[in-house]
Structures are given as C-alpha cells and as structure tokens.
C-alpha cells in the first residue's frame, strides 16, 4: 500500500513531467525535468529504497540536468562561447545539488543497511554485488561502450568534400580515404 507521502511524491512527479513537456523555454524544461526526478527520488525513498533514491537524485536529477544545460549551451542558435547568466546560475545550483547528493550517497553507502531486503544485515554494496554480479558487469561494459559511442558521435567532422580544395580531394581519393567508408 502506498503511503500518502508516496502518492504526493508521485503526483508531484507527474505535475513536473507535464510542465517539462508543456513549457517552451529549454532552461525551464530542464528544471522541471530535474524536479520531476527529485519527486521520483522522494517516492523511491518512501518505498524504502534509499540508495535508488540517491541515484535517481544524483544521476537522473543532477548529472543529466548538467548534461542538458551543457548541450543546450553548445547548440544554442545564438551561440555564445560561455554559459550565459541564467544558465550559469542553474548549472551552479544543479552542481550544488549533485555534490550534496553525492555526499549523501557516501554517507548512505557507508552506514545504512537495507531495511527490508533479502539480506538486511549486509551492507548494500555487498548485497547488490552478490545479487546481480552479471548485471553489474554488463552495466559497467555498457558505460564504457556508451563513452565510446559518445566519443564517436562527437568526433569533429573533416571538412566535406565539396569544401576541400580540388587537389586535396583527389589526394584523399587516391589514398582511399573517401570511399573506404563505404565498407566500414
């Protein structure tokens, strides 16, 4: 049975979600998204999942928001080289939340034991590892592969063929640099 606090948290999550979809200004959208994450974190906490709550608040609420702001500032149409006023304040705020939550996580992981898990006496980390070793490994590799994917997708482009000097282009064609991409 879900407690009243839990229901309130879920309601808040939904309200912020609707706001995130409905709002136009991207900064507000990201704020709403982060708040929605925090509401979900509260729900997780009420459900007795303190660690999941910490992860939701730090990773989904904090880290993802910072990434959003970063990409927004990178891809803004009136691009400026630095993060602008409002964005900077929000990024700072998100950073502070992130750090605070990280501290909380440290505290939590080192002291709290799980209230109603199958192995209530073991520290969470050990229980977690014992229960899902392959899953943990897979996610570890997944993180690595994600980093590879990101590094590939953000590789700066070589100038397109049409913009190359004619000599350059033929040289590239000779060395096979242009068509090699056909296969791999």
């Amino acid at each position: 049975m879900t407690s009243t606090v839990g229901i309130a948290a879920l309601a808040a999550m939904l309200v912020f979600a609707v706001a995130a979809v409905g709002l136009r200004d991207m900064i507000r959208v990201v704020s709403a998204l982060a708040l929605s994450s925090l509401a979900l974190a509260a729900f997780l906490f009420v459900e007795g999942m303190a660690y999941a709550a910490v992860f939701e608040a730090t990773v989904a609420g904090g880290l993802v928001s910072i990434l959003f702001l970063l990409v927004i500032s990178m891809t803004d149409d009136d691009h400026v080289g630095y993060v602008r006023g409002r964005t900077a304040v929000l990024a700072g705020g998100a950073g502070a939340v992130f750090l605070a939550a990280l501290g909380l996580a440290w505290q939590g992981l080192s002291t709290i034991t799980l209230a109603e898990s199958t192995a209530a006496t073991e520290p969470f980390v050990e229980w977690f590892w014992a229960a899902h070793p392959l899953d943990v490994l897979l996610v570890t590799v997944l993180v690595f592969v994600g980093v590879l994917a990101i590094s590939r997708l953000t590789t700066p482009l070589a100038p397109p063929e049409s913009e190359r000097a004619p000599g350059e282009a033929s040289e590239a064609a000779e060395s096979g640099a242009v068509e090699t991409e056909e296969i791999a």
Binding site: L148, A149, R152, L153, T155, L157, P160, E181
Partner: peptide, 12 residues
C-alpha cells in the same frame, strides 16, 4: 548503444 554509434558511423 553500440549500434547507436555504428549506424551513423559515416558522420560526414
């Protein structure tokens, strides 16, 4: 995730 980067591998 691996395929997300491999499909647009010819980013140019």
């Amino acid at each position: 995730v691996a395929s997300y980067a491999l499909v647009p591998f010819r980013l140019g």
